[in-house]
Amino acid sequence: MSAPTSNPTSGGRAPAAGVRFDTPETGATSPGDQGFDALAAWELNPKVALRPEPFGALLYHFGTRKLSFLKNLTVVGIVQSLADHDSAEAALASAGITPAQRPLYVQALTTLADSGMITRRAA
């Protein structure tokens, strides 16, 4: 498994651990106000389309019209596998994420949750 390839930068964008947002804020309330909990069950938001690309993937949210780029194939795999696991923590373990790598991937998932790209699964 590879480690995330980008570092956070300033300028109003949130590129945490291979996640880059290139669209301006729409003024809508954040769908991720629920907070990210790695022990909870998560899934790709049903309003989000994921399109694999050679660099990673494009995520498009049909509700907010937000476009996101995942520039890390491991993050793409984790996002795609979230629905198959009881928790985000289980998805990270299944992807072979080490304890040293875990904070970067949790940060990426937190960013995706805060933007509404992934949502908690109903119990």
Rank of each mutant, 00 (worst) to 15 (best):
P4S: 03
S6P: 07
T9L: 13
G11E: 10
A14V: 11
G18K: 00
V19G: 04
R20C: 04
R20L: 03
F21T: 00
F21C: 01
D22N: 12
P24T: 00
E25P: 08
E25V: 12
G27M: 06
A28T: 06
G32K: 04
D33A: 14
G35A: 11
A38G: 04
L39G: 11
A41S: 09
W42R: 07
E43C: 13
N45Y: 04
P46N: 03
K47P: 03
V48R: 03
V48G: 05
A49C: 07
P52L: 11
E53F: 10
F55I: 06
G56K: 01
A57E: 09
L59N: 07
Y60L: 15
Y60E: 15
G63C: 08
L70T: 04
L70G: 00
N72C: 09
N72V: 00
T74F: 00
T74A: 07
V75Q: 00
V79Q: 06
Q80F: 09
Q80P: 07
L82P: 04
A83W: 08
A83K: 15
D84L: 15
H85E: 15
D86V: 15
D86W: 05
S87D: 05
S87T: 01
A91V: 01
G96I: 04
P99M: 02
P99Q: 04
Q101C: 05
R102A: 11
P103A: 03
V106A: 07
A108G: 01
T110H: 08
T110G: 09
T111Q: 09
T111N: 06
A113L: 10
D114F: 11
G116Y: 11
M117H: 05
M117A: 10
T119A: 15
T119C: 15
T119D: 15
R120T: 10
R120D: 03
